[in-house]
């Protein structure tokens, strides 16, 4: 599969690390499923680590927004880190930088979400 996902616990914060291509198809479906199941397990602090994501297409962006919405509706917080220059630019053009909570590194994201 194009996308690998690993879940870690960092002091009560769930870190979901993504590895590969977040593109139309299995990857976006699997990602949304994963977030849904994390929320169903009662996780309320989720950090998405995009350091090893090589590509995000329009469907990938849609998946991130949809997951963000799901988290918000469950009363959970979600934060993105290690965005990469290209994805940051896409978020700028689509004005979505204001919608997501973003940190540069995982450590900062975990700290910020724990406050």
């Amino acid at each position: 599969m194009a996308l690998k996902m690993t879940v870690r616990d960092e002091g009560g914060v769930t870190v979901l690390a993504l590895d590969g291509r977040m593109v139309l198809g299995e990857a976006t479906t699997a990602f949304r499923e994963k977030v849904r199941s994390l929320l169903a397990e009662g996780k309320v602090k989720i950090v998405l680590n995009l350091e090893n994501v090589t590509e995000i297409d329009s469907s990938g962006l849609g998946a991130f927004v949809a997951s963000h919405r799901s988290a918000a509706s469950e009363g959970a917080s979600m934060r993105l880190c290690h965005l990469g220059a290209k994805f940051k630019e896409v978020l700028q053009i689509t004005k979505l930088l204001t919608v997501f909570d973003v940190s540069d590194t995982e450590e900062e994201a975990v700290r910020a979400i724990s406050r």
Partner: peptide
């Protein structure tokens, strides 16, 4: 022409 808003269909 950058001034603008979200795409349509994404943000309620």
């Amino acid at each position: 022409f950058s001034e603008g808003s979200f795409p349509v269909g994404l943000v309620d």
